[in-house]
């Protein structure tokens, strides 16, 4: 899929996006020069540790970064010909929930406890489509049934506390997809769910992506989830993209030292009983990133020049970008 899609025009293009948070302690450069494309029909996973800027990237696309303290300092988010960052708030509201929708990490708290499920879904339709209330309700129930909620007629009149966690996430997905968006941003959609429910939700997202011909931007820290659903992967570290590749490519030939370290820290059946390899050190403080390459303080192959030059994304292989000039030599040595 990704190979054909890559040839076409991207659905969404992010160019040199910078979102900073101005706190009393200083400026947190949470997203600092991020660029990538999402092509029609693909699932693009953004992977990284907590605080690497993956969620902030998603919120910036949605225009939901709280201002202040957040501020988009620069860059472009192109949806077709429109730069979302230049749209007035009213026009952006027409995009949200209509062209681009979002599913959040916490289904437990992401639904309004005092409104019925049906009402919360149909208000999205009523906001964006020219339909009657009765029609909106019918569409909501249809959507609930499509995401696998049994007896949707009854569930539509229930409140969130009457649904289980998995059901809530299904309802969230129904809410996000009811206006048939072209892009769904799923921010850690399965993190809060238990493992059996996780794979059901991922399967559902995959099925719906094909059925609705939409793209999915999947934000996750879970490489297992990535392997299951992604077509392409972006690896983020400390507010920057450090690697971008097709999913098979990335799993077989991880290029960046950070990506390799991530894979080494995964538990695997082959190395049962051995201690897991952790990445030494901590995620750098976003108020005070290291100079040059931001991973150098934890990198096994760091050299003196890493402190002075900002590594650019270079094509290590076709459609495989790595932000490390030394990735080809000996990063896997240990």
């Amino acid at each position: 899929m990704s190979a054909e899609a890559a040839a076409g025009r991207p659905l969404l293009s992010i160019r040199d996006l910078r979102t900073y948070f101005h706190t009393s302690d200083g400026i947190a450069r949470s997203v600092d020069g991020v660029s990538f494309d999402i092509f029609p029909g693909e699932t693009l996973a953004v992977v990284g540790e907590s605080g690497c800027g993956k969620s902030v990237t998603a919120f910036t696309i949605m225009g939901l970064v709280p201002v202040p303290p957040g501020r988009v300092e620069g860059g472009e988010i192109l949806l077709g010909d429109r730069d979302l960052l230049k749209l007035p708030e009213s026009a952006m509201r027409d995009v949200r929930g209509n062209d681009i929708s979002m599913v959040f990490q916490e289904p437990m708290t992401s639904l309004n406890p005092i409104l019925t499920i049906g009402r919360q879904i149909s208000e999205a339709i009523l906001r964006h489509k020219d339909v009657t209330k009765v029609e909106a309700r019918r569409l909501s129930i249809e959507m609930l049934s499509r995401v696998g909620i049994p007896s949707p007629e009854r569930r539509a009149d229930e409140y969130p506390h009457q649904l289980s966690g998995g059901m809530k996430q299904r309802a969230m997905i129904a809410m996000a997809l009811v206006c048939r968006p072209r892009l769904l941003i799923a921010d850690e959609p399965t993190t809060a769910l238990d493992v059996t429910i996780q794979s059901q939700i991922l399967d559902l997202l995959n099925d719906l992506r094909e059925e609705f011909e939409m793209s999915v931007l999947l934000i996750t820290h879970d490489l297992g989830v990535v392997a299951e659903v992604a077509d392409r992967v972006i690896v983020m570290y400390a507010g920057k993209v450090v690697e971008s590749a097709g999913v098979v490519d990335l799993f077989e030939r991880p290029g960046h030292p950070y990506t390799r370290a991530l894979f080494r820290s995964l538990p695997s059946l082959e190395h049962r009983g051995e201690a897991l390899q952790v990445i030494p050190g901590n995620v750098p403080n976003p108020l005070d990133f290291p100079s040059g390459c931001r991973f150098r303080t934890r990198c096994p192959i760091a050299r003196p020049e890493c402190a002075t030059t900002d590594p650019q994304l270079i094509e290590a292989a076709p459609r495989h970008l790595v932000a490390c000039p030394f990735s080809s030599d000996g990063g896997d040595a240990q």
Partner: peptide, 12 residues
């Protein structure tokens, strides 16, 4: 709260 963010994400 998260549900306010959800509501905003619907374009309300």
């Amino acid at each position: 709260q998260d549900y306010i963010r959800t509501a905003k994400a619907k374009g309300l």
